[in-house]
């Protein structure tokens, strides 16, 4: 029996699922080294966070009466990103609350996937930073002995991270070259600089993310760090320390490139990245907390549609030339 169908009769291999899957796999690779060093605690933290995200997503699908589909893996990405932006020694309820906020306040009320104006992971992290700043910024010392049971508090000694030392105006103990290997105090996923860089290049090559925003973000942050160093040293050292400490590099590769919250046109994306990078340095200079990338990113998300409109206005409201 023949039936009617609507064109197109083809579809491409590149779907939202494949894009999200690339990002998810890239971020999962950041968990490997911490698991090797410290046991399975990082996996538990990430798992709790991802589970909360899925639970919130399922709840909202039921409320809205939509089908729950197994290919919706974007909540997993949100959950994992939040877990990677928090320290490993954090109590388990913290990433869960952050993820619940991210899904229930920053993502679902705006219409769910694809309609959120603000990056949910950044919003969740900002919420817990404002509510429990001491918990979010307490890091364990990787050079001393520590033990992390799967659930419950571990035994470790605390140390201040390079970004906190920079905030106080002193030079961190660790050399920038040593920071590349990731063996210093910081959030779970943001210290593995080399791995993040490799993931970034992989994402750009498979076209799951676009490089303009990242490059402009890093460029603007580097420029601000070189022109206004927070510590007494050469501009190059300041650039190295600023770019390698805190969540700046992680945000530049994974959060700024999120296609839903960034502008749609190329010049607007460059401006967005540069704005976010500059605001990150402003937050680091003038803000209360030692890290400012997520705050700056939320500001840039608010300004993203304006940047698109500005580009269209500059183009003359007719878009690209047409024919005939």
């Amino acid at each position: 029996m023949l039936k009617n169908a609507v064109p197109p009769y083809l579809k491409s291999e590149f779907t939202v699922f494949s894009m999200t899957r690339s990002t998810l796999l890239a971020q999962l690779s950041l968990l490997v080294v911490p698991i090797l060093y410290y046991g399975f605690r990082p996996l538990v933290v990430a798992g709790a966070s991802m589970l909360t995200a899925v639970a919130c997503h399922v709840l909202f699908c039921l409320i809205r009466g939509k089908n729950i589909s197994i290919t919706e893996i974007s909540p997993l990405v949100t959950g994992l990103m939040i877990a990677l932006l928090l320290p490993m020694n954090v109590p388990l309820w913290l990433p869960c609350i952050a993820t619940a906020f991210a899904m229930l306040v920053a993502r679902e009320p705006f219409g769910g996937f694809g309609r959120n104006p603000f990056n949910p992971a950044a919003a969740g992290l900002v919420f817990v930073t404002l509510c429990w700043p001491r918990l979010v910024f307490s890091y364990f010392d990787p050079s001393r002995a520590s033990s992390f049971p799967l659930l419950g508090a571990g035994t470790y000694s605390m140390v201040s991270s390079p970004s906190q030392v920079l905030k106080q105006g002193f030079k961190p103990d660790i050399l920038p070259r040593e920071m590349l290997w990731g063996n210093f105090a910081g959030p779970l996923g943001t210290t593995g600089i080399l791995i993040i860089g490799a993931c970034g290049i992989l994402l750009f090559l498979t076209r799951a993310a676009k490089p303009e925003a990242t490059l402009c973000f890093l460029g603007a942050a580097a420029l601000a760090a070189a022109l206004f160093p927070r510590i007494l040293c050469s501009p190059l050292t300041s650039v190295k320390y600023e770019l390698l400490s805190g969540s700046l590099f992680f945000c530049s590769v994974f959060l700024v490139t999120d296609p839903v919250t960034s502008p749609r046109t190329l010049p607007a994306r460059c401006l967005y990245g540069a704005f976010a990078g500059a605001m990150t340095m402003v937050f680091r200079w003038l803000g209360t907390y030692e890290q400012g990338a997520c705050f700056a990113l939320l500001l840039a998300n608010a300004a993203a549609p304006l940047m698109d409109s500005a580009v269209f206005r500059l183009r003359g409201w007719e878009g690209k030339p047409n024919e005939e």
């Binding site: 609350i97 009320p109 404002l130 509510c131």
Partner: peptide
């Protein structure tokens, strides 16, 4: 049932609440 602590007197908590009440 949970304590947000000193963050609940910041304006952002007020704005969040206003948003949900408005909805």
């Amino acid at each position: 049932g949970f304590v947000m602590g000193r963050a609940s007197d910041f304006p952002f908590a007020g704005f969040l609440l206003l948003g949900f009440l408005a909805a």
